[in-house]
Design a protein around this nucleic acid. Sequence first.
DNA 1: GCCAACGTTGGC
DNA 2: GCCAACGTTGGC
Length: 152
Amino acid sequence: MSPARHWLMKSEPDAFSIDALKHRKQEPWDGVRNYQARNYMREMRKGDLVFFYHSNCAEPGIVGVAEVAVEAYPDPSQFDPKSKYFDPASSRDAPRWSLVEVRFKRKLKRTITLEELKADPALAEMPLVRKGSRLSVMPVAATEWKHILTLE
DNA sequence: GCCAACGTTGGC
DNA sequence: GCCAACGTTGGC
């Protein structure tokens, strides 16, 4: 069994915010349609910790902590013609897209902003802060995880 | 709202 | 297999 890993997942607060996760407690992370992000989700193990990141909003940054509650399984929305995430190229025999379910842990005391994360030399290797990176699910090194929490 | 950067698609 | 066109992401 591999050791627990840490992750970061982006969400647009207008679509699904940390408060929405707090309210719903646990949620299937559907709609990921990028292979690299999907592959990372497939590596996630129950109990792994996740930074919840707000993207495409006034103050982008890390806003909370969640944990992996259910490991990867096929994302049902890919089979639903009425869903905006419908993928006609996917089939139930060979599902293309996966999701994990995440459970709310806590909100951070404050938003750790993208601006701060970018300015921090200890975090320069994170895909998050690299120019042009649009990856919405990424691993976070244990040292980065700890360092980010000291910023709270 | 703009637009740079990126990933995917499809013609050839 | 190349690459132009297109759609999307996400900071600003």
